[in-house]
Each structure stands twice: as structure tokens, then as C-alpha cells.
Design a protein around this nucleic acid. Structure first.
Lengths: 95, 95
DNA sequence: TTTGAATAAGAATTCAAA
DNA sequence: TTTGAATTCTTATTCAAA
């Protein structure tokens, strides 16, 4: 069930701005995933989600692209270590 | 002074793994910036730093790259198109 | 406008337990 | 191995104040 819950979490944060784990929890419950904050915290860690600022200055959970995972060595030198890319491409609903 | 402190914060997190604001605070004090956690929290927000997982599964503050804002066109051509397409496909903005 | 002290709010972890 | 309840830890914000 964890796998399905993870997929649902990704769907939720992709389609709406979610700024706390409690809010994520509520959406999960609407989808039938009745878990607690402790579990959501673990899920977020496993999914490597991060809390970012959106363009309005509000916090929001987002997916990340880790440099190491997605960037070729050619480009590695262009960016500092530990720099990540946040993908806002799918998050235009409120713009 | 805030500007200098911001620069120092970026330097600190670039050169060491920093996993809490308290730890960042201690490094700042070593560099002569004697502020409180409240200020560090604000700094982190202004710098748009994020807490990520490093490869060891430890939390660490990192800088981010906003795809839309800062990615070079060269980089963009290699990676971002696919990302945009994937994310766009999954984004329904009120349909 | 920037900051600190205090507090509220949020998130990670511990410690069973199944 | 996954989870919840409780707890601890961490971070954001409020409310002065300079």
C-alpha cells in the first residue's frame, strides 16, 4: 500500500499547493489513505520531497531533481555541489 | 549586514553539510555573525534554501535552482524539455 | 527595515507493536 | 517491514522594539 500512497502523494502535490504535512494528510484521507503525520513524514523523506517557496512566497511541497541523478558529468562543473533543481514546470495552476 | 550574512550562509552550506538551523547558527557565530534562530529562519526563506536528503540519507540545507529562472539554455535543451513535457502531461489545472 | 525572545506550528524520530 | 501514538526536535511567526 505504501507504493500506491506514494503515487497518490506525488499526484496531490503536483496538482495543488500543499504547504504542510497535515494538509497532505487530509487529501490522502479523501483518497482513502488513512495514515498519520508520522507516516507522511516518512513518505516525504522516501520520496525526497522538499518544502519550497512558490512564486507567492508560500511554502509548498515539491519534487526535486537531484543533480547527481539527472545531470551529466559535463554539466556537473557548471553547478555547485548539493545544488538541486526544483521543477515548477507543472505548477502553474494558480499563476 | 544582512547581505554579508547571506553570503556567509551560502558559503557555509556549500562547504559543509548543515542539517539544522541551530547548526548553521553555530557556524555563523564562529564567523562573527551573532544572530538567533528566528533570523536564520528568515534568511533561509529569503535565500530560498531547502532541506534535502544527501546521498547518506541525512538532511542538509541546499541551494536550489529554479528551472524557469536560472537554468542555462544549454542545460535547458538537454533536460528541461523532457521534464516540462512529463509534468505538463500530468497537470490538469482545473480540467 | 531588521532583529530577538517567546511561542506556535510543523516535522522527524522513538518506541512499541503488528 | 510498516505503522501510530507520543514525544522531541526543528522551524516559522508573532509581537515588540530599536
Amino acid at each position: 500500500m505504501k507504493t500506491k500512497r506514494h503515487a497518490k502523494i506525488l499526484e496531490i502535490i503536483r496538482t495543488r499547493p500543499v504547504d504542510t504535512q497535515e494538509e497532505l494528510l487530509r487529501w490522502l484521507k479523501e483518497s482513502g489513505f488513512d495514515v498519520t503525520q508520522a507516516t507522511v513524514s516518512r513518505d516525504i523523506k522516501e520520496l525526497r520531497l522538499i518544502k519550497t517557496l512558490d512564486t507567492d512566497g508560500r511554502y509548498r511541497y515539491s519534487t526535486v531533481k537531484l543533480e547527481n541523478d539527472t545531470m551529466s558529468s559535463k554539466f556537473h562543473s557548471l553547478f555547485a555541489d548539493a545544488v538541486v533543481n526544483i521543477d515548477y514546470a507543472g505548477n502553474h495552476c494558480g499563476d
